[in-house]
Design a binder for these strands. Structure first.
Ligand SMILES: [Zn+2]
Ligand SMILES: [Zn+2]
Ligand SMILES: [Zn+2]
Ligand SMILES: [Zn+2]
Lengths: 130, 130
DNA sequence: TAACGCTGTGTAATAATATAACATTTATAA
DNA sequence: TTATAAATGTTATATTATTACACAGCGTTA
């Protein structure tokens, strides 16, 4: 059984917003949207984002400084993320590929480093933009 | 034969600095260091960084907003980068693993997306920090 | 109960990262 | 030569993210 996190009011408001979008949202765009719900300052947004990332409800797209909801119950540990990003329309999709995930999970370098997380971003052109 | 890029003065100054460091440097720390050489504004740094990334002389560590020199003549296309990052001491190493690179290069999703680039960052604890 | 640690809140200020706009200069190509 | 692309220098500004501080709520435990 997985521990069910209880989200606070601010966290819920922000998660709701991100989940309603199928594309990544930026922190200040989130801030703009939640002002009507009483969230007034950047820090309130960043604090909620940090928690949501930590518990795996959302992921940060590092190359875009944006946040997207995770739709895969299996990666809610936030430790293994793969995305494809269209450099033309900026469409982002989370990739779930068993073989690739396995390969990455099992990767060992020759420096004795102990990994506990990875993030992979593929860039290219989506079908619509080719 | 590979086309040898001719770097401009600013680009050379900034590449030199980054190559002398074995760890990633941040843009404003670079700016601070090159002020004595007549580079005065952030934009001058960011323009040089952009070019150097484009020609593969340096890579951006996206999760850290920092830039590291590429020591591998083979990835000077800047299209296929893998890094390991220690979350304790922030040590960054570029990884060259033939099998993993091959796997990533050959990866195809089921959406018909055409990839031309990827960036992979592993996080964990290095030998010293375990 | 009271004291404590932990997490979250609200607010203000500020730090850190990155780009826009403009005039000019330099390098390369036709 | 002309023209065209790439780089420069400068000022201003936009965007992203954190520090600092006072306080509130909650569960643990002395
Ligand atoms: Zn996910
Ligand atoms: Zn697209
Ligand atoms: Zn490289
Ligand atoms: Zn370390």
């Amino acid at each position: 059984m997985q521990k069910q996190e209880t989200l606070t009011k601010n966290q819920k408001i922000i998660l709701d917003l991100i989940e309603k979008s199928d594309q990544p949202l930026k922190a200040y765009s989130i801030l703009f949207d939640v002002k009507k719900k009483g969230i007034n300052a950047p820090l309130q947004v960043y604090r909620a984002l940090k928690k949501l990332v930590k518990i795996g409800k959302i992921h940060k797209i590092e190359s875009r400084n944006a946040f997207i909801a995770c739709k895969n119950s299996k990666c809610q540990i936030a430790k293994a993320t793969i995305f494809s990003i269209c450099e033309s329309c900026e469409d982002v999709t989370e990739i779930h590929d068993h073989k690739l995930s396995e390969h990455l999970r099992d990767f060992k370098d020759n420096k004795g480093m102990k990994y506990n997380k990875y993030n992979l971003e593929f860039f290219g052109l989506c079908k619509k933009c080719v």
